[in-house]
Design a binder for these strands. Structure first.
Lengths: 155, 155
DNA sequence: TGCGAATACATGTTATAACAGCTATTATTG
DNA sequence: CAATAATAGCTGTTATAACATGTATTCGCA
């Protein structure tokens, strides 16, 4: 019997190697999740990356964080944090001030509006995520997390 | 001890729920893989999506495939296959002809050049992938594939 | 102290993704 | 058979990603 991923992407030949199937599984699952999260965030007019930034800046509190630090904490590498933050400032989600201590740094902080968006969006997003993973029991989750960690740590 | 993913994205608070960690694991692992594959394909001046299209069209053989069919088989949804194929045709990787049977269809086929690129790039790409998954034994791979399948199939 | 390296960010440019709307062709159905 | 719907693809537009380069500021060290 052909695998289900093969049916999903309408492939009729078997995978040449299990690693190829694992690779496509990860990429496809991520695409599906990304798309679903994006749909969940649409009412708030923000992207998943912007949501991520909001969470990072909320974590930083009133100290805020400079662009480079934000970039380091993002899930997927973004080589253009300046304009990402530009857009978010334009939307009123964050504000930025040049650090008087080191005038190269620009400290970004989350605004009240940003916090409000975060607080509104998070519950349904978390529900969506829990639902997504509902077929995995705690051990299954931990095994999944560990396996992916193994994949990333090979470098 | 804080998890390794937390260290990777410099997060200092624990994850609120294991599903949140699993989510980020998938997204981050996919980003890392995507980036690595992209690097591996750079010498050939094609993107991972284009590589994917080449494999799909090679699978279709001389019958070729229309744009909609290609779109269905792509790992991540691309709502703009026309221009994706435009670019690939411009690079000489594929050619397109309007189907005389049904003049709405445009049948795309891989060219010799496309085949050559595929044959050149594939071995090192597969090596890269096998290396990535080298820490997982066959059972671990199958469990990973099954877990991700569970995540996708919740809909 | 002064000058090159390093850092943090900004900007310019190109390519691609995402979304909506349009056109040509074929299928459907009353 | 005509009218309408459905299908496949194209085009226009905006937003964002990716990459390279430029600029201001600070650091390090002779």
């Amino acid at each position: 019997m052909p695998g289900r991923l093969q049916a999903e992407i309408k492939q009729n030949k078997p995978f040449p190697h299990p690693t190829a199937e694992a690779l496509l599984s990860i990429l496809r699952t991520a695409a599906v999740l990304e798309h679903h999260l994006g749909e969940g965030l649409k009412p708030y007019r923000i992207t998943t990356t912007q949501y991520n930034v909001l969470r990072i800046l909320r974590g930083a509190g009133q100290n805020g964080m400079c662009g480079r630090e934000v970039a380091e904490r993002l899930v997927s590498r973004v080589p253009d944090v300046s304009r990402l933050l530009d857009r978010m400032e334009e939307l009123g989600l964050i504000k930025r001030d040049r650090d008087p201590e080191d005038r190269r740094h620009v400290t970004a902080r989350i605004t009240e509006k940003g916090l409000a968006v975060l607080e509104q969006a998070t519950p349904e997003l978390e529900a969506l995520v829990r639902r997504r993973f509902s077929r995995l029991d705690p051990e299954g989750l931990q095994r999944l997390i560990a396996a992916l960690e193994d994949v990333r740590s090979v470098g």
